[in-house]
Design a binder for these strands. Sequence first.
RNA 1: GGGCCUGUAGCUCAGCUAGGUAGAGCAUCUGGCUUUUAACCAGGCGGUCGGGGGUUCGAUUCCCUCCAGGCCCGCCA
Length: 553
Amino acid sequence: MIKVYWPDKLARDIVGRKKYNYLDKEIPKIKKFVLKSSTSISGVPHIGNASDVIRHDALFRALNGMGKPTRLLWVAEDMDALRKVPAGIPPEFRNYLGMPVADIPWVDDKSYSTHFSDLFIESFEDYGVKVECKSTAKAYRSGEFTKGIKTIMKNLDLIKEIWNKSRETPLPANWNPWKPVCENCGKIMTTAVKGFDESGVSYKCEDFKFKEYGKEAYTKLSGCGYEGESKFSDGDGKLLWRVEWGMEWATWGVCFEAAGKEHFMPSSSFWTAGEVCERVFGWPEPHPSENPLQPYGYMTVSGEKMSASKGNVVATWDWPKFAPPQILRLIFLENPRRTKDFSYLKIPQYVDEYDRLQRVYFGEEKIDNERERENLKRLYELIEVEIPEKMPVQIPFSSAAAVSQIYNPKESPEKALNLARRVCGIRKKLSEADKKMILEKRLIVARNWVETYAPQNYGIAIQERVPAEIKRSFSEKQKAALRILCQELETKEWSEAGLENRIYALRDEVGISSKDLFQSIYLALIGEKQGIKAAALICAIGKDKVCGVLKQI
RNA sequence: GGGCCUGUAGCUCAGCUAGGUAGAGCAUCUGGCUUUUAACCAGGCGGUCGGGGGUUCGAUUCCCUCCAGGCCCGCCA
């Protein structure tokens, strides 16, 4: 029996679901399975935001794999107000607090939210994610939600009954879930509804106090005092969250949407929205309850939640510059319910894991246990951006990092490629496609990683002074070889290839083993028993520095 | 104070929803590699499965409890 990877299992659960959860009836046959992922655009969309999209995409692939017609929606929650100016955004944006992010000007014709959501959407391609993009602001204003809003307004008593289940104080008699945008000042947080009928509400723009994320004190937002009316059919406003969520599901026919754990607390939004979805709209709430994916945990960086307002974020479009996008998919698809603490130093290890999965997939690495093998192959399919036709050439990330420091792949691509080939013992001739892949997907990426996130001189740190115990450990032959090497470096100009030949010849002249010779070179220069291509290393460090070290022997 | 999730080798994880004397990769270590010495090959080290109870012939797997970590607990989305 082959164990089914969680997206496949979840996909089967979704397809096999029979009944409503609040209504005693059967779910009609579903023609198209709609998955929804959404992101609130409070600032720079970061890799933590991508987790929701990537996990839904895995499920999307699983359903497609079952031959089920499926749509994957991604929704920008851009009718939501800006509640805090995130780190990295000019402080003047304080003036826009309380306005829908879709209405805040950026540069050119872009709004604050389209600026960020466009960048986010463009970056989806790097991760192999294809989605249909939606925006709540557009949906409200284009009339896409008008029918849903009307249904809500016809069923206010029922909605109050549902919502009151999770409240201590019941909603007041004149309560209405519509939140208008102030026609005068453009804020949505400051509008207080004063009355309503079946076509709209009347409101006054009043001062509003709220807590900014991470702050104890209340922030006061000034209302402009304007009194006006907001018609539901104009869509210049939004429904309160719990109601909005349920209405979205019904409007778009959503079968599944995972969300962060805060939505799944008892009496939290998922449950209210679900009941609204079924009892008000008659659409089955998206596959709820315990499942392998939800509620999912967030990504933390050194123990802190990654969030736009804290500023400890990596933008989704920056990640591929220093790590393969498949790695991010891997991190999010493994153990999805667990909170992930991330560190840049773990990247080489994750890349090794990815490479291994690729080898297993192409049968280059044998896994005896059939179940495990199938599992790993499936995981590879789900994390790969585009599955290659045949097994690609692999360069371990740590080797790539070392090579990229000796020859900067951006400045001398041919030299870096050559060295990488020799370091990794690749004999076959590389095709142009191989070269491009190794250069762009590995060497340049590794170099960026080293420059930005890795310890200085990752792997090729030359030691200024040779420690006494290392000197003492050298045999007479080793010392002799190093002295000769030093002398010849000083008196002659060497090419890398020439130097390599000379080192091997030296081995025979002095009469020591390759191991002893190479070990002494590496121990003297970098304090390690092994190292990368001695000749290349010496050339990269420069003969002056090398001789400075070797003279100490 | 309450709720939910998580806790398996140094690291990342599998196994746990049909309970049967602990698994993988990476790292580390050892050996091999006479122009592939950070590649590659062979091998070793490494965990009383967070602690304690219980059910059972037998529990990492089921139940209870404690501990630790994460997240959440607003007429915010």
